[in-house]
Amino acid sequence: MITAAAPIRARRVLPGFTLSLGTTLLYLVLIVLIPIVALILKGAEIGPARFWAIVSSDRAVAAFRITLIAAAIATVFNAIYGLLMAWVLTRYDFPGKRLLDALMDVPFALPTAVAGLSLTALFSANGWFGAVLHPAGIPVVYTIWGIALAMAFTSVPFVVRTVQPVLEDLDQSLEAAAETLGARPWQIFAKVVFPAILPAWLAGCTTAFARSLGEFGAIVFIAGNLPFQTEIAALLAYIRLEEFDYNGAAAIALVLLGFALVLLVASNLLQTWAARHREALR
């Protein structure tokens, strides 16, 4: 996470300010800002009444609902699994630990389309997992569980990598003190460790949730993309584009953009809280 606070004491002694800031602003304005403004202008052009009609249509509401539910399932899973991974990777030494740690970066580096392709094949009837799950009557592919699975895969590093440094920094003498006072391991975790990592954990979960809401590449493979059943919001926007319904696409995209910006602010606030929390614990 980039923070704005920097230890700079001197006045502007170092050269290159105009050049570096100019380059940065030029890139940001041309590549990031103007395209986003184009979307917002399109939204304004649609007008509130039509905008509302588009985003409150049955199909759009169903797509938003499916996206939110699947993202919530994925985030709950990652909240637990990510916390477990962060804990195990900071607290224990065991053979294969470095490999396990490296594997936590795979979802980050692997293209989402590749992840989607592999998960789909893995869980379809003739894949390694599907061959077991299908006869047991647990279809994953083409269900909301498949969507949640793809979302969970692509967003798990956010939880692990946010909680891990905080756990590493934690002063273990507090835990030792609690142990001396007769606390049981789960009590130590609940009363000493968990409150200390709570802000970072929530920040990680928020980022993971935001990422899940916007995920597309991994999901289109596994979802089956049936309207009202397994059609996510990002895909509906994409379909509207293919139908040349630019208003429809823009309205849905704006709602997703709104979600993303609210979650970005929430995550930044949580990160600031986490950083202050960390300082206070030192």
């Binding site: 980039i2 502007r12 940001l28 990031v32 916007g214 597309f216 590449g217 997703l256 970005l264």
Partner: peptide, 29 residues
């Protein structure tokens, strides 16, 4: 390496593409 007003906003702007779905980016373009 420099101090200037709006530094925090600039940093947030750099992070924006990270939290926006690529699909939205495509639609913007």
């Amino acid at each position: 390496r420099h101090r200037f007003p709006g530094r925090g906003i600039l940093v947030t702007m750099i992070e924006i593409p990270f939290s926006i779905s690529p699909i939205i980016a495509g639609i913007c373009y």
